[in-house]
């Protein structure tokens, strides 16, 4: 009976020491990259270690209201919709200038024939309505 207790206590003590040692060594080995697996390839020099890194970007959360088909085909291939919904109220002329820039510089797939309809969709975004006085 007492012999078995001693054996049991010994096993528990060994388990605790083993766990403690693992936890200690884990804490003492610094990893430069937060969240990077310890097995990731690394390069070292002069006391600094750089570790290969891979990230996954989160799912997009922003959405456009119904009736934004032209916005979707013209704008959101290159950027998510917040770029449009965070803008202050802009005039049709300002939106035209932006469309021109997107088409000329960034090769956005916008047919000039669609400009008017696209601007109408942009101006119809709820965030484009002027804020009521006092808001």
């Amino acid at each position: 009976m007492s012999g078995r207790s001693i054996t049991l206590a010994g096993l528990v003590l060994f388990a605790l020491l083993a766990f403690g040692w693992t936890a200690l060594t884990h804490r003492l080995s610094p990893s430069a990259a937060p969240g990077t697996a310890a097995s990731a390839p690394s390069v070292s020099g002069g006391g600094i270690t750089l570790v290969s890194d891979t990230i996954a970007l989160p799912e997009e959360s922003a959405a456009l209201p119904a009736g934004s088909d032209l916005i979707t085909t013209s704008c959101t291939a290159c950027h998510s919709p917040e770029m449009l919904t965070t803008q202050p109220p802009l005039t049709a002329e300002k939106w035209q200038a932006t469309i021109d820039k997107m088409r000329t510089v960034y090769k956005a797939p916008v047919a000039p024939a669609d400009d008017k309809a696209l601007i109408a969709e942009l101006l119809a975004l709820p965030t484009q309505r002027p804020q009521p006085a006092g808001k």
Partner: peptide, 17 residues
């Protein structure tokens, strides 16, 4: 959003880019 890798709570101005 706290969903971006290696980032804590941030003000989400635009998801992509």
């Amino acid at each position: 959003s706290g969903d971006f890798p290696h980032k804590g709570g941030m003000i989400l101005q635009r998801g992509r880019a």
